[in-house]
Structure formats: structure tokens, C-alpha cells
């Protein structure tokens, strides 16, 4: 009855299905072509796909261009590192804790910054993230500028170890699929429609009776918590919680992933994460100036596919 509404973002199984199969078979395929070490960058792409998709809940669906998403990503990483340092190794406890703390941080930062709009919102989220950066840099107990080395990767139990690249890859894949699926449901729920209405016309939303601020804050907390999970995974992958995770470069990189992939398509940011990190991986091997080429790609996307790479892939319909 309401099919085809731009408010509903259907799963395109024709594309998503084969992609999932490919991702599930990737370790086998890479072993077959004798390039198993590419599992590490593949895992990294999945981690950033989670973070970029969570940011897009704000940017693409809520119209909130946050330039401080690294704050929550970094918080997740540090919570994992600090928890490990104090003896909390279990992934089952440390990762949810990372999400909760990142969510609480998002609540506090959102409470203040969501009172502003547009450019002011961009600046205030950036400012908060930089404050968090300097807070962690100044904490000598937790590594200061050098970052906090993880004594060991989070423990999974069941005889599984994250030291195995394959295990880590599959754990990340499961969490990426889960969290992206949850965000997908959120986007299509009542809450998601409300969020998209706010992006479209905030005053009108107030005028038909929506408590706009509360919805924006809830979206900010959800996005922050999911970014916290990505941060926990990133800390495990790099074996450390680095201040670089909180830096504004990181926030900028997440935004580039979102814009590159396409803000109005649900899977665009995940595709953007893959494209950006693959560029970094392969062009970065050839030249230290890989960011120049990233810039060139970004300019090309803005000129030729202003709605992102995802719209190129499926000719103007949504992924």
C-alpha cells in the first residue's frame, strides 16, 4: 500500500545476498589464492563499515552532520583498553560496556550540542571530540600520547581466540551484519520515520506534535553506542587504544566514508568505508601521497555521483 515510499528503505537482496555470501567465504577465497593476510584489512573495513553506518543514522537520516563521531569510536576503544588493564578481559562484558559508556558520552555531548544547528552543530561536535582527545592524551596512567597498549585481546570463551585472524574476521563480520541490520530496522521503524521527518522539516515536526529534541538525542545515543562497539573492535585489531581514534582526522575520515558512499542510501557508508580503506591499502602501497588520490576520488564522486557511490552501483535506486 505504501510501497515505494522514500521513507522506507527496503533490503535489496539481489545485491545484499551475494555480498553476504562473498563476505562469508572471503577467508576461504583468500586462502585459495594464497593471500590470507588480506583478511586483516577486510576486518578493518568491516569495523569502519559499522562506524560509518552509525554516523549515517545522524547525517543521512537525521540531518545532523556530526564532526565528532570519533569521540564515541575512541571511547569504545579506550573502555576496552582500560577494562583489560583492570582485568576485565571478557568480550561479552567489555564490549557491551564500551557501548554503554560511548552511549552515555553521546547522551552528555548530545544534550548540549543538539541545541545548535547546521554549521554550529558541526563546530560544537568537533570541539567536544577534541576535548575528549585531550582528556585521554593527558591521562598518563592510560598511556597518554602513546596510547594504551592492550595487554591481550578480549576473551571470547568457547575455545575461540581473537588472535586468529580468521576468528577475528568472522566475529567482526557477525557483529557488523548484526549492528547494520539493527540500524536498518531502526531506520524503517516509527522512530526512523520520525528521524527522517526531522531531517526534512524540523519546525513542521514540532508543529504536528513530535518532541523533536528527544528523538534527535535518542538517535545520537544509538549512533554513539554503535560507534563504541566499532571502537572496541578497532582496539582489539590494533592491540591498542590510540588517541588517534579520537582525533578529528578520524571524525573526518568517517564523514568522508559517509559522503563517498552516499548519505541517503542505507548501505552507502559501508561501501564508502570499503572504497576509502581499499584506496588507502592499495594506493598507499604505491605512494605515500595516497590521500591526494582519495581527494581526487572524492571530487569525482561529488561531481558525477552527488548522492554517493551507492547510487552509481544501482542506478539511482537505493541500496
Amino acid at each position: 500500500m505504501a510501497a515505494g515510499t522514500p521513507l522506507h528503505h527496503a533490503v535489496r537482496w539481489a545485491l545484499v545476498g551475494p555480498a553476504l555470501v562473498l563476505l562469508a567465504l572471503l577467508p576461504v577465497l583468500l586462502t585459495a589464492i594464497d593471500q590470507p593476510f588480506y583478511l586483516v584489512p577486510a576486518t578493518r573495513i568491516l569495523i569502519y563499515a559499522i562506524a560509518a553506518t552509525s554516523l549515517n543514522l545522524l547525517v543521512g537520516f537525521g540531518g545532523m552532520v556530526s564532526f565528532g563521531h570519533a569521540a564515541f569510536f575512541g571511547t569504545g576503544a579506550y573502555v576496552t583498553g582500560i577494562a583489560a588493564m583492570h582485568g576485565l578481559q571478557s568480550a561479552w562484558l567489555a564490549w557491551p560496556l564500551a557501548m554503554v559508556v560511548a552511549g552515555v558520552a553521546a547522551f552528555a555531548i548530545g544534550l548540549v550540542s543538539l541545541r545548535t544547528r547546521g554549521v554550529y552543530f558541526i563546530m560544537i561536535t568537533l570541539a567536544f571530540a577534541q576535548m575528549m582527545y585531550y582528556v585521554f592524551v593527558s591521562m598518563k596512567t592510560y598511556g597518554g600520547e602513546d596510547g594504551l597498549a592492550l595487554e591481550s585481546r578480549s576473551a571470547l570463551g568457547f575455545g575461540l581466540s581473537l588472535k586468529s585472524d580468521t576468528t577475528f574476521y568472522y566475529v567482526t563480520l557477525v557483529l557488523a551484519v548484526l549492528s547494520i541490520a539493527v540500524l536498518w530496522r531502526v531506520v524503517n521503524s516509527r522512530f526512523g520515520r520520525t528521524l527522517q521527518g526531522i531531517r526534512e522539516n524540523e519546525i513542521r515536526m514540532e508543529a504536528v506534535g513530535f518532541p523533536v529534541f528527544r528523538h534527535k538525542l535518542a538517535a545520537f545515543v544509538i549512533a554513539g553506542a554503535v560507534a563504541g562497539l566499532a571502537g572496541a573492535l578497532a582496539a582489539n585489531q590494533t592491540d591498542m587504544a590510540s588517541p588517534a581514534f579520537l582525533n578529528w582526522h578520524q571524525s573526518g575520515m568517517l564523514l568522508i566514508m559517509v559522503i563517498l558512499g552516499g548519505v541517503h542510501s542505507f548501505l552507502g557508508p559501508a561501501i564508502g568505508a570499503a572504497v576509502l580503506l581499499l584506496l588507502e591499502e592499495f594506493v598507499g602501497d604505491m605512494t605515500t601521497h595516497w590521500q591526494f588520490y582519495v581527494g581526487a576520488v572524492l571530487v569525482a564522486v561529488v561531481l558525477f555521483a552527488p548522492n554517493g557511490i551507492a547510487t552509481l552501483a544501482v542506478r539511482r535506486s537505493r541500496v
Binding site: 521513507l7 522506507h8 531502526v186 524503517n188 521503524s189 516509527r190 522512530f191 526512523g192 520515520r193 513530535f210
Partner: peptide, 10 residues
């Protein structure tokens, strides 16, 4: 309430 996060509104 519009604080319903999971069921498709469609």
C-alpha cells in the same frame, strides 16, 4: 509513541 525502534512503520 514514536520511540519504537524495531517494527517497520510501513
Amino acid at each position: 509513541s514514536s520511540f519504537r525502534f524495531f517494527a517497520p512503520a510501513r
